[in-house]
Design a binder for these strands. Structure first.
Lengths: 96, 96
DNA sequence: ATTATATATTCCAACTATGGCATATATAAT
DNA sequence: ATTATATATGCCATAGTTGGAATATATAAT
């Protein structure tokens, strides 16, 4: 496998390597949300949420859609669910 | 879900958010390897490989076993394969 | 005991991420 | 045109990551 591909994958994991961004992914797993809804749900400043969303988008994990003043974000990747389920099982087993 | 769990998951993703460590995971996916074998395969200094292995171990992704002078590392997590396959498909589709 | 080998640790400079605050932009409403 | 609202951008101090070079530790062989 070429190095560039490891770089790309690392970028995806980097985007997911932050609790705020993981929480956003969890929110979006329940369906499309505008930035304002995400800000309401999470205890962070709006600019920080915006930056987090942009990072997830750049990694190709989410996509956005504009409607009037609002920007709606939603998941673009389908395999998060399985992987998270697996991680959850591991945590339940108390291996970490 | 409590915040602590997001922290823990973020730690796992952080461990995977580096091309060298991903390459190590790939090597270990083909079976247990000692540090020296990993050093032979990857173009990095031994101390750096050691540190990478320790980081993966602390995240609960790999385990180690000592035998004489050698330390053998192997995967401890079973769901990497599926997730990597999914990521590969996404890359093949050229979405990133 | 000395030496060789495999792995881990420490130190460090360059780089990158984090998250708040202030501000800019874009659209909508009056 | 002015004002209000939603989102994005820039700046910044602090903290964490990266990967090399030198060194330490642990086990094995002579």
């Amino acid at each position: 496998m070429n190095n560039n591909l490891y770089e790309k994958k690392a970028q995806i994991f980097k985007a997911l390597s932050n609790p705020v961004r993981l929480e956003i992914m969890d929110l979006l797993a329940n369906g499309e949300k505008c930035v304002c809804e995400i800000v309401e749900n999470l205890n962070y400043e709006q600019p920080h949420i915006s930056k987090s969303l942009i990072k997830l988008k750049e990694a190709g994990l989410i996509k956005d859609r504009k409607d009037g003043l609002n920007v709606y974000y939603s998941l673009k990747i389908c395999c998060m669910g399985e992987f998270f389920n697996c991680l959850n099982k591991i945590f339940e087993q108390g291996n970490n």
